[in-house]
Design a protein around this nucleic acid. Structure first.
Lengths: 185, 185
DNA sequence: CTCGAAGACTTTAGCACTAAAGTTAGAAGG
DNA sequence: CCTTCTAACTTTAGTGCTAAAGTCTTCGAG
């Protein structure tokens, strides 16, 4: 039925089944902790698949969408070097060279040498790139709104707050030799 | 200082800065929704980096760890075909061929033809593979316990419940032509 | 002024993945 | 039986990534 966008493998057991199986195989598992962690991971995977499908409808890939987002977030005049882009996206500069090549070919960005310092390269968002970003942003926010539809305003706030607390713990703490998190503040 | 495990690029703006920047560029953004979504994504990325570092200390990669987990979750006698493994992990069978090759070479699994149906291949966890899984599982649960350390039991339960509700929405709903989520129940 | 060193990007080699074509065993029909 | 179909895995071609080596500009010291 023209379902060419068929997603491979979501043939995994339900979350409850998975947690039950873990408990059988690993006695000292805290099911509450496992529920949080597994739900986080799964939710994220599903969301990324959904984003991918949506931006594909606009003719761009998720990787291209990430570059557009990063340029827009940098604010006007929407210019960054490949190295800076790579850092913000958690990639190596080498990967950026090829992404920018392709995106420049598609007219989403321009790629020029900095006239003041000819070692540097400047990647700049084009009007077309900005328009694509806006379309993708509209789709994404609609999707996110749908996703949170069942939660009340209070619940959304609470969820956001709890997640931010976890994020702080993982960002402001540094894993020591054994990989444990230690308090810094 | 032997920090060869240096993680590339976490040079991104703080969550609050990022949300503020989005609001400047996109008027009708709900900051509450954006906080939940962005925190989710970031948290997940950081956690995956942490898992990767930890299992690397055991001499296995995250991809190998995922295979071990899937086999253990399938329950005794810890056997699955490459195709089934691929489905559960969301990969193509082709990718599984190579992973299983490598893991068999490392003694984590065995790979044999099914005698009853010689088209099928059976990947089975070895004792060594199971021991690796157990070590990795101990590290992972310690890490997860640390991560949730600042949350009370009630907060953990609440967070889990909220995440499960989101997950249900994304799993039980089917995106329609426009990618919107629609109710099924 | 010239040389050496540093910085910012690009290129190369190698790996893991996908899509699509290829292989082989088992099942079904004549 | 023999052919054809189907299922399950493997192989091939091509993409996108990393790590490491290479190139080119700029800066600083003698």
């Amino acid at each position: 039925m023209s379902e060419s966008t068929e997603q491979p493998g979501t043939d995994e057991p339900s979350l409850d089944e998975q947690i039950a199986a873990y408990q059988r195989e690993f006695r000292d598992l805290d099911p509450q902790v496992e529920q949080v962690v597994s739900a986080l991971g799964r939710l994220n995977r599903r969301m990324n698949v959904a984003y991918g499908r949506q931006v594909a409808a606009l003719g761009i890939s998720t990787t291209e969408w990430e570059v557009l987002k990063t340029l827009v977030l940098s604010g006007a005049p929407y210019r960054l070097g490949p190295g800076e882009l790579a850092n913000r996206l958690g990639l190596t500069p080498a990967a950026m060279t090829h992404r920018v090549d392709r995106m420049a070919g598609e007219g989403l960005v321009t790629r020029d040498r900095d006239e003041n310092n000819r070692v540097r390269v400047i990647v700049e968002l084009t009007d077309e790139g900005r328009a694509k970003w806006l379309e993708a942003m509209r789709m994404a926010t609609d999707f996110e709104e749908d996703l949170l539809q069942d939660l009340s305003g209070d619940e959304r706030g609470l969820l956001g707050e709890l997640l931010v607390r976890l994020l702080r713990r993982v960002e402001h703490a540094q894993p020591d030799a054994g990989g444990r998190l230690t308090d810094l503040e």
